[in-house]
Amino acid sequence: MNPNNDTEPYDYLFKIVLIGDAGVGKTCIVQRFKSGVWVESQASTIGVDFCMKSCEVNGKKIKLQVWDTAGQERFRTITQSYYRSANGVVCAFDLTRQSTFLNVEKWMNDVSKFCEENVSKLLIGNKCDLTEERAVSREECAKVGSYYSVVDYIETSAKDNTNIEASFIKLATVLLEKHSSSNLQQEPNTVFGLGSRTKPVKSTCC
């Protein structure tokens, strides 16, 4: 737990959901961003984990709530309930496994189904340190990114700490611009609920 982060004052609070196939490195990305560490054999995430991290963008204190989801297909119906009212989505894939790249389509379809229409998306190709094993070209990835109107496509390595912080800052910057231009301050109280009364969203159109 991070009590220091919980009580820190902030100007904006953004909710970010981290999605992508199992084993692409989602939890390693979060851990690197949050604590600056990298774990060789990071256990598979079961369900949805959560962490908070504060950062500063353009002189504003931003608090990011990162929801780190399980990648296995069968958890999707459960994790989809976390998409609702997310401000940002980070969709990650593994640059060395083409199947995880091809599945970006599925993840993005979920995003368009379950997130708010104006959600900001970031596409991340992780494990860029494994240059020898690379299975998809940067051009291909960037093309897919622009097809889904992501704010950016970034190649990262949680292991080498390449572009991890930059990715979150990029997303936070875009969110800040969007929300300060619409003059919409994020109220901590306007959180999205996972209450069981509101069962996991299945097919509603946001």
Binding site: I46, I78, S81, V191, F192, L194, G195, S196, R197
Partner: peptide, 20 residues
């Protein structure tokens, strides 16, 4: 209920019998 946290926080407890 007011917090709208739901019960999914306990998902990993249940399906791993707390091993996780």
């Amino acid at each position: 209920e007011k917090s709208e946290v739901g019960t999914l926080f306990a998902l990993s407890w249940l399906i791993t019998w707390y091993s996780y």
